[in-house]
Write a protein that binds this DNA or RNA. Structure first.
Lengths: 143, 143
DNA sequence: TTTGACATCACCCAAAAGTATGAATTTGGA
DNA sequence: TCCAAATTCATACTTTTGGGTGATGTCAAA
C-alpha cells in the first residue's frame, strides 16, 4: 500500500541527491549561480513531466467520471455499467476510426492495453470485431 | 471473347452426354420412364442451379440498379456516383460488422473481390480503414 | 466495333486486429 | 485495512485487413 509513496520518496530523494552531487562536484567551480539554478530547474521540470505523465491515467479517469457526473453532459445510456469508463473511452475512439495504436498513443498507454480493453468490450457486447462493436454500441445507444 | 460461350457449350454438352450415358447404360432396363424423366429433371435442375449461381453476379447487379431506379426506394445520396453500386453494397455490409470473408460468402464472390471493392472504397473516400470508411460514409450520408 | 467503367479474381507482402493467458498495480468502497 | 473491480502490460499466436499489381470478362455507349 505504501509502495507508491516509497517510490515517490526514493525518486525525489535520488533527484535531490543528483542535484547535490552536481553542485559539489564541479558545477560551483565552473558555472555561475544562474546557470546552476537553470540546470536544477530543467532537471526538476523533467522529473515533474515524468511524474505527471506517469500518473496521468488516474487523473484522466477522475476527469472522465467527473464529466459523466455533470447533469446535461452525462452519458444518456450507461446501461447497468455494462462498460467501464475506460472501455467507453476506447470505444469512442474506435467509433472515430482510430487504430489501436493511435488510441494507445493518445491515451498514453501501450498497444497491449488497448487490445485488452477492446477484447473486454467485445466480450461484454457479445461481438468479435470492432465494426460489430460499433453496430452494437449504436443499437444500445452507448455511442 | 468466346471463352464463356465455349465453357457453356462444353458444360452443356457434358451434361447431355452424361444423361445419354445414363440412358443407354442401365436406366432404361431398371427404371420406368417416369423415374428416368425424374432423374434427368433433377440433374438438369442441379445444372441450372449451378449455372444460375455462377452467373448470379450480373443478375444481382441488374436487380440492384433496378431497385435504385425505383423512386421512393432509391438511395437518397449517391453523391456524384462517388461509389459504384457494388461498392455501396459492400460498404453496407461493412457497416453491419461483417468481415470481408462473410461479405464474400453472402455475395457469392471471392475474398479477393471484396478486398478490391473495399480498397476502391477507401480510395474514393480518402481513408485507410473500414472504420474510417464508416465514419466518412455517415458524414456523407452514404449510409 | 472499339473503348471505358465495372466487376471479378489472383498473388504476394505488410500491417492491424483479435485470442488466450497470466500478472502487477491502483482505486474505491465495505 | 481488506477486497473486488479496474487498469495496466506482456508474450505468443492466429486471423483479418490493407496495399500494390496485373489480368479477364461483361456491358453499354460512342
Amino acid at each position: 500500500m505504501l509502495k507508491p509513496i516509497l517510490k515517490f520518496g526514493v525518486l525525489t530523494g535520488l533527484a535531490i541527491a543528483a542535484a547535490k552531487l552536481l553542485e559539489v562536484s564541479y558545477l560551483t567551480d565552473h558555472l555561475s549561480i544562474k546557470a546552476y539554478i537553470s540546470i536544477v530547474g530543467v532537471a526538476f521540470l523533467a522529473l515533474g513531466v515524468y511524474l505527471g505523465l506517469k500518473h496521468r491515467r488516474q487523473k484522466v479517469l477522475v476527469t472522465y467520471k467527473e464529466v459523466e457526473a455533470i447533469p446535461g453532459v452525462g452519458t444518456p445510456a450507461l446501461h447497468d455499467d455494462l462498460l467501464t469508463g475506460r472501455e467507453l473511452e476506447v470505444l469512442r475512439h474506435i467509433g472515430q476510426g482510430r487504430s489501436n495504436q493511435e488510441i494507445a498513443d493518445t491515451l498514453f498507454v501501450s498497444l497491449n492495453t488497448i487490445k485488452t480493453h477492446t477484447n473486454n468490450i467485445y466480450g461484454k457486447l457479445g461481438v468479435r470485431r470492432r465494426t460489430q462493436a460499433l453496430e452494437k454500441a449504436r443499437q444500445l445507444k452507448l455511442l
